[in-house]
Nucleic acid binder design. Structure first.
Lengths: 105, 105
DNA sequence: CCATTATATAAGCAACCACTTATGTATTCA
DNA sequence: TGAATACATAAGTGGTTGCTTATATAATGG
């Protein structure tokens, strides 16, 4: 792996919000509209983070109807490292289960 | 580890020049003036990178006379991850051995 | 003691980043 | 078909980054 690729990778995961997104995706695939509730961020902000993660090859997108379903790319060369790092981070305050309970999913 | 600490860590290593610095330090402790030759960068630029690495707890500094000798902090929580990542990167073009041959060390 | 060497730090600057608001484009559903 | 929903993208903005040049400080060596 070259230095510029490594930089792209580390810059992609070197952001609190994106780490949180990845932490969620490590559990299950999610849609943008679910992230807006989970992260309490606007939809364009999420979209832009996803674009950055996609550019680094960390996530996949699957268009289904009006939704875009995002999931972790488990084939990424540094996927094991990513999982290791995510495991060090605490569980998010808001959870997907909470969303379901609130009838948002 | 909290999200902001992880971000600080990843931002610190998420830079080509700093990855190169760390790659050199993984071999041996070095001084600023040696880095200016190895990386072909100005002295203040190096100093500022070292400050950032120090702030993230990745390196130690040891003042000896007019020199400051920098070395990797092998006690850092994410030291094994760092070594793993550095091992994926190619050996730098310029080497310490080359410096010695040129009579600069 | 004075010149040299090694380093830190400050100010300035261009580029980049992460957000915002605004808008365009599909898709679904009544 | 028209309203609502999900999403992408563009433009604008304030803050950050990584460099530069300039300068200060401290140690060494003649």
């Amino acid at each position: 792996m070259e230095y510029d690729q490594m930089e792209t990778y580390l810059k992609a995961i070197g952001d609190q919000k994106r780490l949180l997104i990845l932490k969620f995706l490590a559990k299950e695939a999610l849609r943008i509209c679910e992230f807006t509730d989970l992260l309490e961020m606007t939809q364009p902000a999420i979209s832009q983070h996803m674009r950055k993660l996609k550019h680094a090859g960390l996530v996949w997108e699957e268009k289904r109807g009006r939704w875009t379903i995002w999931s972790l790319n488990t084939q990424h060369m540094q996927y094991p490292v990513l999982i290791h790092l995510l495991d060090l981070l605490p569980e998010p305050r808001r959870s997907i289960g909470r969303l379901i309970a609130e009838g948002k999913k």
